[in-house]
Amino acid sequence: MDSALTLLGLVSLKPSYGYDLKQLYDRLFGLRKPLAFGQVYATIARMIRDGLLAPLGEEAGDGPDRKRYAVTPDGEERLAEWMFTPDVPSETLQNNMFAKTVVALLTGRDAQRLLDLQRACHMEQMRALTRQKQSAGLMHVLLYDHALFHIEADLRWIDMTAARLTQLRAEVLA
């Protein structure tokens, strides 16, 4: 998740003070990792430099947190580009689990056990997330769902792999 562009999006809602921006960001996205103030101001500074944001008016003598910022036309353009460029699915074909399974098969270790352990770990994680999700607001439910679906994808992979272990062993050892 690109936190800079996310902040830019929040500013596009209405010109805001840095403090309010951080509060809003944390409420919406900061469930696991709230933004530090320093990070907010550093990001704002970088975006002003890039011409995406501009301070509003001359509210003289004020410190950085007494300034309001607004999105520039360049900023709007950048925002639209971000919004409507689909994210490329991440390339995870060569992930760790796959590697471990293949090596286990190659070296005659218990691949089934490996998968079962991984599965148990994933399930434990899913159960934890499901528990948290049950008491969460809708905003966060979406976030949990995202995580759950990803873990589920891994689990499906694990199940399929487990079901094909015999075949896989034959192929790897061939």
Binding site: D116, M123, M126, R127, L129, T130, E152, L155, R156
Partner: peptide, 13 residues
């Protein structure tokens, strides 16, 4: 369905 199973306290395979 693992998401359904995740509502459980534990699972038996």
């Amino acid at each position: 369905d693992s998401r359904t199973a995740a509502y459980a306290d534990r699972d038996i395979i």
